[in-house]
Amino acid sequence: MSHDQDHDHAHVHRFPPRPDQDDTLTYYRAMETAVRELLIDKGVITADDVRRQVEDMDGRNAGRGAKMVARAWLDLAYKQRMLANGSKAAEEIGLDVGPLKLVVVENTSSVHNVIVCTLCSCYPRMLLGLPPDWYKSRNYRSRMVREPRAVLAEFGTVIPPDVAIRVHDSTADMRYLVVPKRPTGTENWSEAELARLVTRDSMIGVALANEV
């Protein structure tokens, strides 16, 4: 029996197709297309340059931040350099953060840090990749500075009353990375093993690092 005959035609169309999201030519979408086509026509950039940039942006992920955190867990001197100057510490282990001014904050037994950008959606993309949709939502942005303990609890992260919450509102030229607490039971782990416990959300501060 051929593959086609396995399928009931009605079954294939049971779900309506998701509408395209690129079908509305808004003002800024038209402007982006016009500027891009002009730059390509004039030989300033090529279509392949544009594609390559998009590929690079999509290729960045939280593994970069996790590498920094795992290194900090293993190397106290590195952690101190990182807390003093995050951008330099990133460069030190071969992570290009571009013009980003990185501030690294550390969770301890007395302080829990969490990042938000109330004005827009500033995010350390060079270290964590593209931000999750909820990070850009009005709900998260307005409530995290107003009732952080309630918002964290909705993420499943309940912070004890004797631990201070420190919310960082990323309003200007700095970008932030949280070093979560190192899980117990990881005493002899390698950097690569530790890095696997460091999730994106734990570096935003809405979660803890994965337990062993």
Partner: peptide, 11 residues
């Protein structure tokens, strides 16, 4: 509604 030690840091 949180704890007295809670802070926000803003640029």
């Amino acid at each position: 509604a949180g704890q007295p030690v809670d802070v926000v840091e803003v640029e």
